[in-house]
Amino acid sequence: MAEALQSGMPVRLSLRRRLVNRAVMAATGVAALLVLIPLFLILGFLGAKGIGSVNWAFLTHTPVPVGELGGGMANAIVGTFMILGIASLIGVPWGIAGGIYLSEYGRNRFGNAIRFTADVLNGVPSIVTGMAVYGLVVVTQGHFSAFAGGIALGIMMIPIIVRATEEMLLMVPQTIREAALGLGIPQWRTTLSVTLRTASSGVITGIMLAFARVAGETAPLLFTAFGNQFWNLKLNQPTAALSLQVYTYAISPYEDWHRMAWAGALVLIVMIMGTISVVRIIASRGMLKGAA
């Protein structure tokens, strides 16, 4: 019986199986290569085309009309930081509070519903968020503003920070909470001064990732911050942002403006990559790894 079966079984691994194995495993390597090529091409082109136009004037001057030499994106750089500042003021405390709820109290169905809603909010197309904020803020106030832009980006930051905070707090061992409670520290103090503090590097990582994610957003700013060719430091006025400026210049028909678009994009990517690098450093040095 056994012999009959064995004679039908290939004793050596068939050539076909070996070839299929080799071919598929090689294909995964090719896939990796194909994915990395665009990344290096994008970063390469940004560097090559952008570096020539990034100079002191670019960082300190406002845009000039087509045909004139010089000019820069100083107003857009400042505007980006204004909008991101407002966004962080909204998104960070709100997100952390929501994350604390989910991890410390929300281990139940209600918490699951919130968790799911946060994931839904994270998946809402940014352009739709922009539209809603237009209706809520811009229409109500009667004008575009850095404030409206900040709200749109802040709303996008909330779900990311909520989930990151929750995940990091959950990694804090229960024994640490118990130790603090056992010392007679009230629950709220325990959560803030012990649990959150223990997880702080992870939470900061989550915040910075959220920051990096919204820093380059353009679509939600189209109808909120709107853009501006001039200096503006007022929160209730239309405000320029790097991403908006890159978009305007990229789709224009002028050679000069294209150069400016590459330069603006380079500044933007350096900002974002810088943030992410800091995240990596925090994540690799901090106690709680795995956030990035």
């Binding site: 994915v35 665009p38 990344l39 994008i42 940004l46 990096a212 994610r213 820093a215 380059g216 957003e217 353009t218 679509a219 991403s243 890159v246 978009y247 990229a250 994009a265 933007l268 990517i269 974002i272 990559m273 992410i276």
Partner: peptide
């Protein structure tokens, strides 16, 4: 790749 802004 996920960190590169859409506009770029």
């Amino acid at each position: 790749l996920a960190a590169i802004p859409s506009v770029i």
